[in-house]
Computed example of a mutant assay.
Amino acid sequence: MSLQVGDRAPDFTLPDQSGTPVTLSERLSGKVVVLYFYPKDNTRGCTAEACSFRDGYESFTDAGAEVIGVSSDTVESHEKFAGRHELPFTLLSDKDRAVRKQYGATTLGVMPGRITYVIDGEGVIRHVFSSMTNIGAHVDDALRVVKELTAA
């Protein structure tokens, strides 16, 4: 069961692409976080999605938000993926898929899904978008919601 708008985002700590532990609640602290789950580094759809977030990254940061990507790939895979595509945001390694399970970020209940959550500074989920194919909408919808939240 995936989380819904209005639910509290479960806190977690995972290693980033350099192996440094990242805790969601520490990243929130009054700031909006765009947390997106994707299936796998270096696949066509996931590369397109990451590059779309990269291309819009300045708009997210200008609006006061942080972008964080999560997949079950290793720290080493994330490091290469981020370097190859010049990704300026954090990628987290959820090797055992525990966080993915907490968030219900799966397709058909078993396969890694492509789901984006916009979480406000209080840790409440304000937007959920799930689509394996409409990659551009993940970025566009998230940015629209971030701007709405930070303008208020």
Rank of each mutant, 00 (worst) to 15 (best):
67 V>H: 00
109 G>P: 04
88 P>M: 10
67 V>Q: 01
93 S>K: 10
64 G>A: 09
56 G>D: 03
73 D>R: 03
76 E>I: 05
89 F>S: 09
80 K>F: 06
54 R>Y: 08
96 D>W: 01
48 A>F: 09
55 D>E: 15
64 G>V: 09
99 V>Q: 05
60 F>N: 11
66 E>M: 14
95 K>V: 12
89 F>D: 07
60 F>G: 14
94 D>A: 02
113 G>Q: 11
90 T>D: 06
69 G>L: 01
92 L>Q: 02
111 M>P: 04
83 G>H: 07
54 R>E: 11
59 S>H: 08
60 F>W: 15
88 P>I: 10
105 A>H: 10
58 E>W: 04
87 L>Y: 06
87 L>T: 06
84 R>K: 15
63 A>I: 10
90 T>W: 01
101 K>A: 10
69 G>P: 04
113 G>T: 13
71 S>A: 05
88 P>F: 08
67 V>T: 03
111 M>A: 04
72 S>I: 02
97 R>Q: 08
79 E>G: 14
107 T>L: 13
79 E>T: 08
58 E>G: 00
62 D>Q: 14
106 T>P: 05
54 R>F: 11
48 A>Y: 09
81 F>H: 03
77 S>F: 07
66 E>T: 13
108 L>Q: 07
110 V>R: 14
82 A>V: 15
87 L>M: 10
100 R>T: 15
75 V>M: 03
108 L>P: 03
98 A>V: 02
58 E>D: 02
